[in-house]
Design a protein around this nucleic acid. Structure first.
Lengths: 343, 343
DNA sequence: ATCAAAATTTTACCCGCGTAAATTTTACTA
DNA sequence: TAGTAAAATTTACGCGGGTAAAATTTTGAT
């Protein structure tokens, strides 16, 4: 709040009695200037509320302080949560996060990568669409921008991957379910959008074999990112056909399970581990809504904090290393079994 | 893909055999240059994949082509949906949307407004936190940036407001519920985060009075944006106390209702309009998950398309008008009653 | 008080583009 | 083919800072 409008750093430097390059240094890193100087600048800052032009700043900087965050589908609260944590870490570290959602669409994902390149970000945290991704577009992007993939892995792309250990997820649910009742059949989409789904199926099959149990994979139709409705339709079909081989269903992910549970309710099938229930249902992810399903969903939980923390830390290391790692590291975090009422 | 790396527009212009200012014009608006010129530029563009430096572009432009989108809580799929629609419209119109979430936190909202100002956006679509917003911060912001508020209104702030007609929402649910059964009591948070909640309560009271029915407002405790858990806790309490005055509950919003339905299920209370049910539950918003609750949720639906379309169109008109409107217009869209199984 | 190290200032140049005005070229009409 | 409007080029300047090197000042320790 003041009389004279400060137009640029030149004027601000003049008024605060300090040279422009020093002021420039201050905005780069306040701790890089002498304490007395810092206080003079900050005093002037309160009187004249000046802020440097970010476009002029980034124009010449080799590495900007921007970090791109790309998720495949923001209407999924799972990603909403992840994004919140990641954003917070970036801001703490003095970076400016920019958020993008591919909204389940390949063309959109490519457009995002395009505009992201022109932003010259210090680094990018990318959760790709997966099967729908344009691999070559992502590969090209990663050559130009320091990128850490998270949530959904694409072999060889990005300098690192941080995600969840699908085997840990499935082994815990399968072990628990088969120990406490009939062995689970595996409920998934026929053409899953996400590579995690494939890994979970494989983990299910290997786990069942190890336990000497007969595996049953139920593949349901449907495309797109409306997993709940796909799960519901698939559930209605399976239940009406009475084709379930066992009384225990393990869904590939919570969103499918949410739809499946809706189908059970509509069909009058009682779900849970309580006496009188016909079916047990469990799943993977610990989706933010999974504790509010009816019954509440037994599931294997992501370590949200670990995944987001480690993603960000990996990206920071990558940035400090100049954008390249020796080897592409893959960090996988185990699941934690959350026992609720559904199984 | 080519040998020589193009570093700037000067070089690109030289290679494509056209003057730099003309190339600059092309990137401003490809249709503003002669057809033959355009083809030459585009041919060169394919060979040398050059892209202008966005920071240098925006530095001197009086109005950038950026549009800021701010929502209060991105982990709510409702906003995920809205954002997807709004982003699409902005891109169609040649703007570059930037997405921000306040994550339910006032300081974060203020920070967003700060960095948004330094982006010098052509306009901003702002869904404020509501009660938690720093009114003076928002007011200051709106003075400097053409802003259209949406979803959640704050009197007098921004050049326009686009949202839903809460009276339409509540009148339809109340009318329907009281016509088909016992009159509804109203279930809400004691200190709602959002001004819509207050309007809905007022609408409930006036509607009940008009129908000559006795109103009952149930206020539950809890703060923050974890509405589902708040609704669940409140539901458990109300159900255990058996303090419900009627067998029909109208929740202020779907997220509360999702929690309330979970509480009903846990408590063994059968919900629905089918025979044998003890309780009816309805709500407002048509949250993306409301069709997957058990039972599926009868609710008054936002016109997502209308709200997002009209928000964007209003902002475009505002931008074309130079950032100011004569009068602050408030556009409210009516609800559509979605009858499902819960009431 | 002396002196080296750290911090700051000066100086000087660059970045990549926007934009305006005057001039020249091109395209279309009569 | 002349005349004219549209498009393109030239010219010239500005934007708001980054950044490097050398010169100067300040700081802190001896």
């Amino acid at each position: 709040m003041s009389q004279p409008e400060i137009r640029n750093m030149e004027e601000f430097a003049a008024i605060s009695g300090i040279s422009r390059p020093t002021v420039s240094k201050y905005f780069h890193d306040p701790s890089s200037v002498r304490k007395s100087t810092r206080m003079r600048i900050e005093a002037a800052l309160e009187k004249y509320d000046y802020r440097p032009n970010i476009y002029a700043m980034n124009q010449n900087r080799k590495l900007t302080k921007n970090i791109g965050i790309v998720v495949p589908y923001l209407a999924d609260p799972f990603f909403g949560e992840i994004v919140r944590m990641i954003e917070g870490r970036c801001i703490e570290a003095g970076f400016t996060p920019s958020l993008f959602s591919s909204h389940g669409d390949q063309a959109h994902e490519n457009d995002i990568l395009d505009s992201l390149r022109s932003m010259k970000p210090a680094g990018v945290l990318l959760a790709p669409l997966g099967r729908q991704s344009d691999k070559s577009a992502i590969e090209t992007f990663c050559k130009h921008v320091p990128t850490v993939l998270f949530d959904s892995n694409i072999e060889g792309m990005g300098e690192a991957f941080v995600g969840s250990d699908n085997h840990s997820f499935v082994s815990q649910t399968v072990e628990y379910l088969s120990r406490t009742g009939q062995s689970p059949c595996f409920f998934e989409m026929r053409t899953p959008a996400n590579p995690n789904a494939n890994k979970r199926r494989i983990a299910y099959l290997s786990m069942m074999e190890r336990l000497g149990l007969e595996p049953h994979v139920i593949k349901i139709d449907g495309t797109g990112w409306g997993f709940e409705e796909i799960g519901r339709q698939g559930g209605l079909k399976v239940l009406s056909e009475k084709s379930l081989p066992t009384n225990t269903v393990l869904c590939s992910n919570d969103r499918l399970a949410i739809g499946f549970l809706a189908a059970c309710y509509e069909s009058g099938v009682r779900v849970g581990r309580a006496p009188g229930c016909e079916l047990r249902v469990a799943s993977h992810d610990d989706h933010p809504f999974s504790r509010f399903t009816c019954p509440s969903l037994t599931t294997a939980a992501h370590d949200y904090n670990a995944v987001s923390d480690h993603s960000v830390e990996t990206l920071f290391r990558l940035i400090e290393s100049g954008g390249r790692f020796e080897n592409r590291a893959e960090s996988l975090f185990p699941a934690r079994l959350i026992m609720r009422e559904s199984a």
